[in-house]
Amino acid sequence: MKWILALLVAGWLGGTSGAWAETSLDPAPDRFVAGTSYTLGFWVLQHGTHPYEGELSPVGLRFTRPDGESLTFPGTPLPEAGHYAASVVLPAGDWKIEGLQGMFMPHQAGTVSVPGGLKAEPVRKESIDGFVAQGVDYWGAVRPPGFPDLPAEPAPVARATAASAPPAPPSDPLPPSAPPPSVTSSRVAGAAGVPAWTLPLAAAGGAALAAGGWWLVRRRSADDEEPPPRDPSAETIVISG
């Protein structure tokens, strides 16, 4: 009775709007061989567009053969939101792959043939469109298959205010005004304010004094010299008969 009630609750949750998720597989090895261990990465996204906000348990991959044999491998959370990895070892046969998604209903993720290759279910276009429309990117370089990088939001443009605006550069100083024209005066500031017209007279007087001094020196020199001796023959008068 309890398991019937659990199935009814799970079915109700799966059918309720918003209570569903999708599992998508990462790129897998090219070939699977029976009895060999492989690691498969997979994503569990609510609505197929974003990680579930909370803890999901159990999460893993379930492989089922047409004869009813089923193998379940638990998933280990990886650093990226909604990303898991499971180590699987399969016997020979054709297997259907389902993602176990905690409280959400299992979701078919692909098929694999052993020996042979794995074929993953493609990510629905509606899921990628929904991811782009919501405008929130949850991942970096490692992201679900087919999910594009969303452009970064432009940085807000800072508006300049009176407080934040840089100070205006100082304006060029005005060129110094020309000095006022000098006032011509009839008096030249000489020693003790002597009038300009007296300067030529002073110069002429100085020249006259210098000439007079030179004449006196020459006169004294002439007086000090002895006269040359007289020649008596020069004063003899000869009278011829």
Rank of each mutant, 00 (worst) to 15 (best):
K119A: 13
K119L: 12
P122N: 11
V123S: 02
R124G: 09
R124D: 14
R124L: 13
E126H: 04
S127F: 10
I128S: 03
I128Y: 00
D129G: 00
F131G: 01
A133R: 14
Q134D: 13
D137S: 14
D137M: 07
D137F: 05
Y138H: 15
Y138R: 10
W139H: 09
G140E: 11
R143D: 00
R143I: 01
R143S: 00
R143Q: 06
P145Y: 11
P145W: 09
G146W: 10
G146F: 03
F147H: 00
F147K: 03
D149P: 06
L150C: 01
P151S: 12
A152V: 08
P154M: 10
P154L: 12
P154G: 07
A155L: 13
A155S: 11
P156F: 04
A158N: 08
A158C: 03
A160Y: 07
A160I: 14
T161I: 01
P166M: 08
P167Q: 13
A168H: 05
P170K: 12
S171Y: 02
P173I: 05
P173L: 05
A178I: 04
P179Y: 03
P181K: 05
P181Y: 06
S185I: 02
S185V: 01
S186A: 05
S186M: 07
R187L: 12
R187M: 02
V188E: 09
A189G: 06
G190P: 00
P195E: 09
A196T: 05
W197C: 09
W197I: 11
L199C: 02
P200R: 13
P200S: 08
A202F: 13
A204Y: 11
G206W: 09
G206C: 02
A207Y: 08
L209D: 02
L209V: 08
L209M: 08
A210R: 02
A211T: 01
A211D: 00
G213F: 12
W214L: 07
L216K: 05
R218P: 01
R219I: 00
R219Y: 10
R220V: 02
R220T: 03
R220Q: 04
S221E: 15
A222G: 06
A222H: 09
P228E: 09
